[in-house]
Simulated scan of single mutants.
Amino acid sequence: MTEREITEVAVGVLVAPDGQFLLTSRPEGKVYAGYWEFPGGKVEAGESVEQALARELHEELGICIGAAHPWQTLVMDYPHARVRLNFCKVFDWTGEFQMLEGQQMAWASLPVQVRPVLPGTIPVLNWFAQERGHVGPTHLD
């Protein structure tokens, strides 16, 4: 079997001053519709991860982000695509949140109450748990 090409994806982990983080649902018509994830999207040719993230969050959520802080990367092999998720923490943004793709949003903390959670999101919740010394499940199955 040949290796599938990796699609680069920029993912925003928006962290509010109280430590909660933003999750959004995948809109109808997309693979894994209804699953909860951190928002973001594909890196286009010629874009940096940070530029792609700023563009995607503006297109999806209607906000303008400040600095994107590269945090973790993770390769996920989904049935429909092989993706490298480039997670960046974002602590400041401007504008009102608008769900421009018909998705839902939720500010969350551990353990995450929304479900189902996209498989690529679960490791991020575990990284948060490690950083924050959280004991117990990070999401409820």
Rank of each mutant, 00 (worst) to 15 (best):
F97H: 01
P111W: 02
G29M: 04
V83M: 15
P123H: 10
P70G: 03
I122F: 11
A106Y: 05
I6N: 11
A10W: 05
K89S: 00
S48D: 05
R82H: 10
E28I: 01
E131V: 01
M105Y: 08
E8S: 06
R82A: 03
T121R: 09
R4H: 02
M76S: 14
R132A: 09
W36F: 06
A33N: 07
G12V: 07
V13P: 04
A52N: 12
H80P: 03
G34V: 02
V11I: 13
V90F: 06
R4E: 03
G95A: 03
R4V: 04
A54P: 04
Q113D: 07
A10P: 06
G62E: 12
D77K: 10
Q51G: 09
G46M: 04
R26A: 11
F91I: 00
W36T: 04
G120N: 13
Y78K: 10
T138R: 00
H58S: 12
T2G: 13
G12A: 15
H80V: 09
P39V: 01
N126H: 13
V124Y: 06
T138C: 08
V83T: 14
M1R: 09
G12S: 10
Q130M: 13
T73E: 15
W71H: 02
L23K: 04
P119F: 07
A108T: 07
G120I: 06
D92N: 07
V117L: 14
Q98K: 12
E96F: 05
Q98E: 14
L100V: 10
V9G: 00
T94E: 15
I122N: 08
G120L: 09
A81K: 15
R82W: 09
I122R: 15
G95Y: 04
P27K: 05
V9Y: 07
T24I: 11
E59L: 12
F38S: 06
P116I: 08
K30D: 12
V124W: 00
E8P: 08
G29N: 05
L14P: 02
E96Y: 05
G133Q: 11
H139F: 13
L140I: 15
M99K: 11
L61W: 03
E59F: 11
S25W: 06
S25K: 07
Y35N: 09
M1N: 05
L110Q: 00
Y35T: 07
G136C: 01
G46Q: 06
Y78G: 01
G66A: 02
